[in-house]
């Protein structure tokens, strides 16, 4: 197995699925000659031609709407929204159309599209290149929302998403693109959507997270192990549908739960995870459920000091974990 970066794993998944299935094509802004602004689609236009690696007009609703129509006519579009911040013009297409075409046609039509978008901050992206938008979509039945945190999951989950008969939003934390590397199988494989993964076994406290924050949580857990606190870390991987069984199991295991995400707290994914735990295993708990999330401000500031303060870090998470362990 070769060691791959997160971004390479995503690129490989696209390349392999496009080779395997001629119905698969990518479309978006700058995905062709430019190879994407992060270069996720680098080299695809040379291999598959400009019709299957389609540089579209700068129009996000069109990128998603055209994907929906192409899927109705038998293709498997993988749409790229250049930054998750810019998905807003396409929200009507995603919520009102993609999420309910199967439902409102009584199963006659489906919508096998994937919408990929880099999200998250910590890269000096300022107000409009840093946001976490997942909570907008996790509320909507009919959608699947996936956020991988490791290269092997990124590849396996993207292949699953492309083969999935339902619309999947696939958010890639842009800070992970070149930060995380690991051995990734060469061949195509699928990682199931809807299944969380235990990243670290522990007995004192449980940390539930996803994306970049998951890595910070693992680093914090390592620090705390040296202090004698054993942390159990669950990577959600899919935010809709949530892996309820895994969440409840992880919560019950230690009775102390910290939910961590970069997105702000109010009505974020942590709210739902916390409600699930409260509904199903309140009496297994030994401490109030804790959440560590982004601040309640509209966007990530451009100013470096403010951005640093906005972002989560292993130190911040370690503090929250210590506090919970002591409770």
């Amino acid at each position: 197995m070769a060691v791959k970066q997160f971004i390479e794993a995503i690129h490989d998944a696209l390349q392999e699925e496009m080779s395997r299935d001629e119905r698969v094509f990518v479309l978006g802004e700058d995905v062709g000659l430019r190879g994407g602004v992060f270069r996720v689609t680098a080299g695809l236009i040379e291999q598959f031609g400009e019709q299957r690696v389609l540089d579209t007009p700068l129009a996000e609703s069109a990128i998603v709407g055209v994907s929906i129509g192409a899927a109705a006519n038998g293709l498997r579009p993988v749409a790229e929204i250049q930054f998750a911040d810019f998905i807003m013009p396409a929200v009507n297409q995603i919520l009102s159309e993609a999420a309910r075409i199967r439902y409102r046609s009584n199963g006659d039509w489906d919508c096998p599209i994937v919408i990929r978008a880099p999200f998250g901050g910590g890269v000096h992206g300022a107000l409009y290149h840093s946001q976490s938008v997942e909570a907008l979509f996790t509320h909507t039945p009919g959608l699947k929302v996936v956020i991988p945190s490791t290269p092997s999951d990124a590849k396996g989950l993207l292949i699953s998403a492309i083969r999935d008969p339902d619309p999947v939003l696939f958010f890639e934390h842009k800070r992970l693109y070149r930060l995380v590397k690991e051995e990734v199988p060469e061949e195509a494989y699928t990682t199931p959507i809807g299944k969380a993964a235990v990243r670290r076994e522990g007995d004192d406290i449980t940390v539930i997270s996803y994306g970049l924050a998951l890595h910070f949580a693992l680093q914090a857990a390592e620090q705390l192990a040296a202090e004698g606190i054993s942390a159990h870390v669950l990577d959600l991987r899919t935010l809709r549908p949530l892996d309820e069984e895994a969440i409840l199991e992880a919560a019950s295991r230690t009775g102390k739960v910290l939910i961590v995400h970069e997105d702000n707290k109010v009505c974020g994914v942590g709210a739902e995870v916390s409600a699930l735990i409260a509904e199903h295993c309140l009496f297994e708990l030994d401490a109030p459920i804790a959440r560590l999330c982004g601040p309640e401000v509209p966007a990530m500031p451009f100013n470096g000091n403010l951005e640093r303060e906005y972002m989560l870090s292993p130190a911040k998470i370690a503090d929250a974990m210590r506090k919970l362990a002591k409770f």
């Binding site: 069109a62 129509g69 006519n73 159309e97």
Partner: peptide, 13 residues
């Protein structure tokens, strides 16, 4: 919204 679906179906064609 469906005008874009028409365009997408045409792209598939």
């Amino acid at each position: 919204t469906h005008l874009l679906h028409g365009v997408g179906a045409a792209w598939a064609a």
